[in-house]
Lab assay of single mutants.
Amino acid sequence: KDKDLLKGLDQEQANEVIAVLQMHNIEANKIDSGKLGYSITVAEPDFTAAVYWIK
């Protein structure tokens, strides 16, 4: 199951987060929520590491 990592990002921010996570071998998903911006989700086992790397 995926957990929400970040919400309300613009496309550039979302792409930067995806890139950082991929560099650390964390699979992440970018979801277009329309006017609400983009959300990033990661698998539950990767959540703690993902939070660490996006600081």
Score class of each variant (00 low, 15 high):
35 K>E: 12
50 A>G: 03
40 I>E: 00
44 E>M: 08
26 I>F: 01
4 D>S: 13
39 S>V: 13
20 V>C: 14
5 L>Y: 03
35 K>Y: 10
48 T>Y: 13
50 A>I: 05
17 V>L: 10
45 P>T: 14
6 L>I: 11
49 A>M: 12
51 V>Q: 13
17 V>S: 02
48 T>G: 10
4 D>P: 14
47 F>K: 02
42 V>P: 00
12 E>C: 15
24 H>Y: 08
11 Q>I: 13
52 Y>R: 10
36 L>I: 06
6 L>M: 10
47 F>C: 06
42 V>R: 00
7 K>L: 09
43 A>L: 07
9 L>N: 01
43 A>Y: 06
14 A>Y: 03
44 E>T: 07
17 V>A: 07
29 N>S: 10
29 N>Q: 12
31 I>L: 06
18 I>Y: 05
8 G>L: 06
54 I>D: 04
30 K>W: 07
4 D>G: 09
12 E>N: 10
45 P>D: 14
25 N>E: 05
4 D>R: 14
29 N>V: 11
17 V>H: 02
23 M>Q: 09
5 L>A: 01
6 L>H: 02
2 D>Y: 15
6 L>G: 02
15 N>T: 06
46 D>W: 10
4 D>C: 15
28 A>Q: 01
34 G>W: 04
50 A>F: 03
5 L>Q: 02
48 T>H: 13
25 N>T: 04
26 I>Y: 03
49 A>G: 04
37 G>Y: 05
54 I>A: 05
21 L>C: 03
30 K>N: 03
30 K>H: 03
38 Y>F: 13
51 V>H: 08
25 N>Q: 08
4 D>F: 15
21 L>T: 02
20 V>N: 05
18 I>A: 02
5 L>S: 01
12 E>A: 11
14 A>R: 02
35 K>A: 13
22 Q>Y: 08
33 S>Y: 15
12 E>V: 09
27 E>D: 10
55 K>N: 13
51 V>M: 14
6 L>N: 02
25 N>V: 03
44 E>S: 08
42 V>Y: 02
43 A>P: 08
5 L>N: 01
36 L>W: 13
53 W>G: 00
40 I>T: 00
52 Y>M: 12
35 K>V: 12
43 A>T: 06
47 F>G: 02
4 D>V: 15
36 L>H: 12
41 T>R: 10
4 D>H: 14
3 K>D: 03
29 N>T: 11
26 I>P: 00
38 Y>I: 10
35 K>D: 12
18 I>W: 06
43 A>S: 11
19 A>G: 06
38 Y>H: 03
17 V>T: 05
20 V>F: 15
10 D>S: 15
31 I>T: 05
1 K>H: 10
54 I>H: 02
4 D>T: 15
18 I>K: 03
3 K>V: 14
50 A>N: 01
32 D>W: 14
24 H>L: 05
36 L>F: 12
31 I>R: 07
38 Y>A: 01
53 W>V: 09
46 D>Q: 06
51 V>E: 12
54 I>F: 04
17 V>D: 00
30 K>D: 01
50 A>S: 04
41 T>L: 07
7 K>M: 11
9 L>T: 02
3 K>E: 05
5 L>I: 06
55 K>A: 12
25 N>P: 01
17 V>Y: 11
12 E>P: 05
44 E>C: 08
24 H>F: 06
11 Q>K: 11
36 L>Q: 10
31 I>D: 03
21 L>Q: 03
13 Q>N: 04
42 V>M: 02
12 E>L: 10
37 G>N: 03
12 E>F: 11
10 D>T: 15
22 Q>C: 11
31 I>F: 07
30 K>T: 07
49 A>E: 11
41 T>M: 10
36 L>C: 14
20 V>R: 08
46 D>G: 03
5 L>F: 06
6 L>E: 02
35 K>L: 12
53 W>Q: 01
9 L>C: 13
15 N>A: 10
2 D>I: 14
33 S>A: 12
55 K>Y: 11
14 A>S: 03
6 L>R: 03
51 V>L: 13
42 V>D: 01
46 D>M: 08
19 A>S: 08
2 D>A: 13
41 T>I: 08
15 N>M: 08
42 V>L: 04
49 A>R: 11
27 E>T: 13
20 V>M: 14
27 E>K: 15
44 E>Q: 05
26 I>L: 03
44 E>L: 10
9 L>A: 02
29 N>A: 08
10 D>C: 13
50 A>V: 05
21 L>I: 01
46 D>A: 05
45 P>K: 15
48 T>R: 12
10 D>Y: 05
19 A>R: 15
27 E>S: 14
51 V>Y: 11
54 I>Y: 05
23 M>C: 12
46 D>V: 07
11 Q>G: 10
32 D>S: 09
30 K>I: 15
1 K>A: 11
45 P>R: 15
47 F>D: 00
14 A>C: 06
4 D>M: 15
8 G>A: 05
24 H>C: 10
38 Y>R: 00
1 K>V: 09
12 E>G: 08
55 K>H: 12
25 N>D: 08
35 K>H: 10
11 Q>L: 15
24 H>W: 05
23 M>L: 13
26 I>M: 03
55 K>S: 12
17 V>M: 09
44 E>D: 07
33 S>I: 08
5 L>D: 02
51 V>C: 14
39 S>Q: 06
53 W>Y: 10
35 K>F: 10
13 Q>K: 09
45 P>V: 14
43 A>G: 06
47 F>E: 02
25 N>W: 06
41 T>F: 08
53 W>T: 03
49 A>T: 08
14 A>Q: 01
19 A>D: 04
23 M>R: 12
26 I>T: 01
51 V>P: 00
42 V>G: 01
52 Y>C: 13
21 L>M: 03
9 L>R: 01
38 Y>K: 00
39 S>I: 13
37 G>E: 03
54 I>G: 02
52 Y>E: 12
32 D>N: 11
48 T>C: 15
43 A>F: 07
23 M>D: 07
26 I>N: 01
13 Q>F: 07
8 G>P: 01
35 K>S: 11
36 L>P: 04
1 K>L: 09
53 W>D: 00
12 E>Q: 12
13 Q>T: 12
1 K>S: 08
47 F>Y: 12
1 K>N: 10
1 K>G: 10
9 L>I: 08
43 A>W: 06
29 N>H: 12
3 K>R: 13
5 L>M: 05
7 K>G: 10
12 E>Y: 09
29 N>K: 14
39 S>D: 08
32 D>L: 10
48 T>A: 14
48 T>P: 12
15 N>F: 08
23 M>E: 09
7 K>W: 13
21 L>S: 00
48 T>I: 12
50 A>T: 03
39 S>R: 12
39 S>L: 11
55 K>G: 11
29 N>M: 11
37 G>S: 05
49 A>W: 10
41 T>N: 04
47 F>W: 13
2 D>V: 14
20 V>D: 04
17 V>K: 01
7 K>H: 14
10 D>N: 13
44 E>Y: 08
15 N>G: 04
22 Q>L: 13
22 Q>M: 11
33 S>W: 15
2 D>K: 11
23 M>T: 08
37 G>H: 06
38 Y>T: 03
44 E>I: 06
51 V>D: 09
31 I>K: 07
1 K>E: 08
28 A>I: 05
24 H>G: 04
25 N>K: 07
22 Q>H: 10
46 D>K: 05
47 F>L: 05
34 G>A: 04
8 G>F: 10
42 V>H: 01
20 V>P: 00
20 V>T: 08
7 K>I: 13
18 I>R: 02
36 L>T: 09
16 E>I: 13
15 N>R: 07
26 I>S: 01
32 D>C: 14
35 K>N: 11
21 L>V: 01
18 I>H: 03
19 A>C: 13
40 I>Y: 00
18 I>T: 03
14 A>T: 02
34 G>T: 03
9 L>S: 02
3 K>Q: 07
41 T>E: 04
